Simulated scan of single mutants.
Amino acid sequence: MGMEIDRRILVFDGPEGELQRLALDLIGRDFEVHYANDIDEAQILAHEAKGRINAVLFSSSMELERVPDMARRFNVSPAALIPIGPRPDDRVVAALAFHGVRWHLWDEPADESIRFVISSVLFEQDPLEIRYHRRVPTNLPARIEIDGAKSDTTIRDISLGGACLLGGLTGKEGDEGTLSFLVESEAVTIPSRIVWAVGDVGDPLAVAGLSFLEVDPAAGEAIDGLLEAVIARHRIEKRPGAGTDAERAS
């Protein structure tokens, strides 16, 4: 039996409870979710988890001085802290970077962005997580072809290992064919196999999972480009020379 990977998330909310719905939405999505809106209660939950909290989502309205304290009290790396909510001003963002925060979910992030950022933190924090390809959330038009039958579909997420499709289901589990799409006007076609499907052929809400049979260098570069673009939207980078301003902000 393989070793089970912990995927534990602590949601540390503000007194207004703005992250309560998010915590409820995350329950049952391959994550074990702990929720608290008091730092002492959150510390108790982290202690009970015995150092196995992988990511901490916290309200961006929190006082900045709490950030290094959170990492210490929750026994996590600052890189495991994810602010979520309205984007603060640039000085605060620079201070977050200075304190080691690397990912954000500003404003009203889409569900796929939340999943991507959490998975990215897990990818960086857990050495076992590296065995899994990071899935890039997209809304990319595509075409699937199986045994000569072609159907338009939408790629919900994609990785070097496969893709999840919404709508345009053709074929059944185990069938092989190709998935074609454009990335910045470059055509990409990847041999694929349907590994699971939910819904009927022709159902616009049908969902299917594909496994890629072979990814050539050009297709790999295209998928990497999609990944880098999504990372850039959610990454907090420490700017050269920003340390002094960040220290003043904190």
Rank of each mutant, 00 (worst) to 15 (best):
G209T: 06
R239P: 06
I236D: 15
I82K: 07
E124L: 14
E112N: 11
I5V: 15
L22S: 15
V101W: 04
Q20N: 11
A219E: 08
I39A: 02
G167Y: 05
I118P: 06
E16L: 13
E32K: 11
E4H: 13
G243W: 04
E108Y: 03
T170M: 05
S120I: 11
N54G: 04
F31L: 13
R248N: 08
G85C: 07
L24D: 15
S113R: 09
G209W: 03
R87G: 08
A232F: 06
F181S: 09
V215H: 04
S151A: 15
L122I: 12
L96A: 02
E16T: 13
I44G: 01
R143E: 15
D157H: 08
P127W: 08
K172T: 08
E173N: 10
G14A: 15
D111W: 06
A218L: 06
K172M: 03
P83D: 13
P88W: 03
L19S: 11
G199P: 10
T138I: 05
S77A: 12
F12I: 12
D38P: 01
A80C: 08
E18F: 04
V201A: 15
V136Q: 13
L57H: 00
V201E: 15
L205Y: 10
K50C: 06
G177P: 09
E48D: 07
I114C: 07
Q20I: 13
K238Q: 13
D245E: 13
N37T: 08
G243P: 07
R72C: 00
L166T: 07
A49Q: 10
L140M: 05
E65L: 02
G51Q: 01
P240M: 10
G51D: 05
V121D: 15
S211T: 05
T178D: 02
R72Q: 04
A232H: 10
T154K: 14
K50Y: 04
G209R: 04
I9H: 07
F116K: 02
M62T: 03
I9R: 09
E176Y: 04
D224L: 12
L205M: 09
V76W: 01
F58L: 05
Q20P: 02
G177M: 05
A229N: 10
R8Q: 13
V92H: 03
E4P: 11
L26M: 06
R131S: 14
A187F: 04
E18P: 02
D157W: 06
G241M: 11
M62H: 13
E63K: 06
L182A: 03
K238L: 15
I118D: 05
P240W: 02
A95Y: 12
E214P: 00
I158H: 11
G2L: 08
E63C: 03
K238A: 15
G177W: 01
R21Y: 10
V67M: 04
I44C: 00
L165P: 04
G174E: 10
A95E: 11
A55L: 02
R72Y: 01
A94Y: 07
H47C: 00
D157L: 04
P204H: 08
V198F: 02
P86V: 10
P15E: 13
V230E: 12
P204Q: 06
P191V: 06
P141E: 11
H47E: 03
D216S: 01
C164S: 06
V188T: 08
I190C: 09
D126K: 09
R73E: 01
V195S: 05
V11K: 08
L140H: 02
R102G: 12
L57A: 00
